[in-house]
Write a protein that binds this DNA or RNA. Structure first.
Lengths: 343, 343
DNA sequence: CTGTTAGCGCTTTCAA
DNA sequence: TTGAAAGCGCTAACAG
């Protein structure tokens, strides 16, 4: 039903056709002022006939909203693409249902110029921050711009922040407890190498704490996100930490490499070595590899973060502003009793 | 160096501080008119001092550009997330370098309302279309809006369109030729189940043609994108097509499931059954699985599509408007001579 | 080389 | 319940 005279209809066209002023049309549309039933009907008919769609740019420029949400997503770790994709898809789903568009901000720049520009221009109504660091400069940018935002992660100081994050402390504790129960006394945690990220730091800290509380000797070593890195980790284990009988990997990708490397070296899992991995979204999802793992429920968390942001934008009260999602511990085939246990 | 008086500086502030008119500032910025060296210097100094950033919304509303590119990406096939993520990352990279922002349009709606709204609002300067169908209604939307766009894929009728697509005809021919050379006479192609997509239809057509030209009996069966679907395919093969000695899978994910299922049934690969897969971005990337495969070079293609769109936006002439990227055929460990070959 | 003046399409006082 | 008019921040004729 669009007029095909070359230009798309504006609010003025609608107003004219309905025989009212632009003001009334505007208010009929966003309900900020009562409009008589009759007028309202005529307006919506005109909108229908003309195929009118408000222009979000103009809306925003005039002080309204754009209906666009930004997703601040540094493209740093290509290895966990699958996980991030899930997060994006899950959040996108929620936003789509709420009629928001989705601006993916892949700001690699150190100064976050990309983010700053978008935020300051008022292009987005709200932002979700991924890859949150313990001290994250992006927060300052968003606060200055006075823009609602939700963290997918946590900082060191979270006062006044709204976030959804994994309860990594609990998960890590569970892992160590599981291994301790099986009799393991020497564990290595092959952690992500990107220091400064909240998740990484917290995981390290809770690993140390959990080991202490079970009087276990816990070693931490950095490890990349690739099968090769996992294989290398096994090399390190054999060469330098023969006393270790259990390992924890951050991703199933590295764990996969580790398991294959172990097999190649004649190390049986779980008879000789127990293994746990966080995140089973990639290899473990393929169905032939069933490690004892922590399901971090990233997609659920992402959806929740999205819902929280939507609530913020609607000025709805949030029942909780800081949510920790507790991962599922999934017992698999890669953990067993400590081999050299004196009975 | 920003003024912290609450509001961010506008072009008027810059103009005032530099002692010139807004017009000159505008032109100093986008170079559409010569500005004297001295004035120019003062303007940029003022910009620096104020920390001025132009507002893309206002720019666009006034007839300029937004610096935002839309990525029309229907979230339909969750199974090949890894591939799509690569495509996104690769394109995002190019756009970032060219100082464009990146609007991910996950329009699931049948009427493409999401896309239509964004496009008509003038929010984006250009669009890249993913998941192109043989007859794709989105093209009409973009043409009406007179917006530059590049297809990542092809339609049935491509007159006047700019696209980057895989040369699936060539790749499929190569696969069949490879199998024919090894003596196989009965091949099954387990194809993607989403009919209507250009890639799917073309792959089917070229499979049939290639089989004909090698006088091979070629069967096609639909197959999902999951290890389970791959396993099921092997079941079908055993139950209904025992004469087949070679199979082609669309994704390495399904191929992975097939290989494991085959192993479980005592079918040796490649001794008893040869297997080829298109796309080795997920399982094959893990390093322990080396099937004979077709590397579709999706990331390269995505980068190319992005570059082409950028060129269109800059009004630079395109050396080629319709590019077919020829996949790499990678001989692996999953293909061998036909077992029941009469010598 | 520079400035003046209209808008782009919308929201929002303020007044009726 | 409605309208008129003033902007939001920028670009682009048109006129010096």
């Amino acid at each position: 039903m669009r007029k095909h005279n070359g230009k798309r209809p504006t609010i003025a066209d609608v107003a004219q056709r309905a025989g009212v002023s632009k003001t009334v049309v505007s208010h009929a549309l966003n309900g900020k002022r009562p409009v008589s039933e009759e007028t309202r009907r005529r307006i919506f008919q005109a909108i229908e006939e003309l195929g009118y769609q408000p222009n979000p740019l103009a809306q925003r420029l005039a002080g309204g909203r754009t209906g666009i949400i930004g997703f601040a997503f540094p493209l740093v770790t290509p290895g966990i693409a699958n996980l991030e994709m899930k997060i994006i898809a899950s959040a996108a789903n929620v936003f789509n249902q709420e009629n928001y568009d989705f601006l993916l901000l892949t700001h690699a720049a150190p100064g976050h110029e990309n983010l700053r520009r978008v935020v300051q221009s008022g292009l987005v109504d709200g932002v979700i921050l991924l890859q949150v660091r313990m001290v994250d400069p992006r927060i300052e940018i968003l606060r200055e711009a006075n823009l609602p935002f939700v963290l997918f992660g946590r900082c060191a100081d979270n006062a006044g922040l709204v976030y959804v994050d994994m309860d990594v402390e609990h998960a890590m504790h569970e892992c160590v407890a599981h291994l301790a129960e099986l009799g393991h006394r020497h564990i290595i945690y092959f952690h992500q190498d990107d220091r400064g990220f909240g998740l990484v730091e917290r995981a390290l800290k809770s690993f140390a704490e959990a080991c202490a509380s079970y009087q276990i000797s816990g070693q931490t070593l950095p490890c990349g996100v690739s099968p090769e890195a996992g294989a290398e980790a096994i090399g390190q284990l054999v060469d330098h930490y023969p006393q270790a009988t259990a390992v924890i990997f951050w991703t199933d990708i590295a764990a996969w490499g580790a398991i294959n490397a172990a097999k190649a070296r004649g190390i049986r899992i779980p008879e000789d070595l127990s293994l746990i991995c966080f995140d089973r979204s990639t290899v473990a999802a393929l169905g032939t590899f069933h490690p004892t793992a922590v399901d971090i429920r990233a997609d659920e968390s992402a959806a929740l973060a999205a819902q929280m942001l939507v609530a913020l934008l609607k000025n709805e009260p949030l029942s909780e502003t800081q949510v920790l999602v507790r991962p599922y511990f999934v017992a698999g085939e890669s953990t067993g009793r400590c081999p050299n246990l004196e009975m």
